[in-house]
Amino acid sequence: METQEKFLSFNLGVSDTAVISLQHITEVLQVSLAEICSVPQMPSSVLGIYNWRGEMLWLVDLEAMFGYPLMSQESNLLSKMMAIVLENEGKYLGLLVRRLLDIEWLDTKQMKVPGAELFYLKISPFLQGYFLNDSEEIIFNLDAISIIQAPMWEIHN
Rank of each mutant, 00 (worst) to 15 (best):
W58Q: 03
R53G: 12
N88A: 06
G54F: 05
E87M: 08
F66V: 07
E55T: 14
M81Y: 03
M56G: 07
G54I: 10
V60T: 13
G54S: 05
E74Q: 14
G90E: 12
G54L: 02
W58M: 03
M71W: 05
E89A: 14
P69F: 08
R53H: 15
G54E: 05
R53Q: 15
L78T: 08
N76Y: 15
L47V: 04
K91C: 06
L77I: 11
D61E: 06
W52Y: 13
V60M: 15
E55R: 09
L95G: 00
L95C: 06
G54W: 01
N88R: 13
G94N: 13
Y68N: 14
M65C: 07
F66L: 11
E87Q: 11
A83M: 11
E55F: 13
K80A: 10
L95V: 02
Y92T: 04
E55Q: 15
L47T: 08
K80Y: 09
M65A: 14
Y50T: 05
D61T: 00
L62I: 03
N88M: 06
I49Q: 03
I49V: 14
L86R: 02
Y68H: 15
G94M: 04
S72G: 07
M81L: 14
E74N: 15
N88Y: 09
M81V: 12
E89V: 12
L62Q: 01
A64H: 08
V46Y: 07
M65L: 14
V46N: 05
E87R: 04
V60Y: 11
M71C: 06
L95Y: 00
P69H: 15
R53C: 11
F66N: 05
W52D: 00
V85I: 15
N51H: 08
W58N: 01
G54Y: 05
E63A: 11
N88D: 14
S79C: 09
S75A: 14
L70S: 10
M82D: 02
L59C: 12
A83T: 14
G90C: 10
N76K: 13
L77Q: 10
M56W: 03
G67P: 10
L57K: 08
Q73G: 09
G90S: 06
M71E: 11
Y50Q: 01
S72K: 09
Y68W: 10
L93I: 06
P69G: 03
K91I: 14
M65I: 02
L57S: 08
L93N: 10
W58E: 07
Y92H: 09
N76A: 12
Q73H: 13
I84M: 12
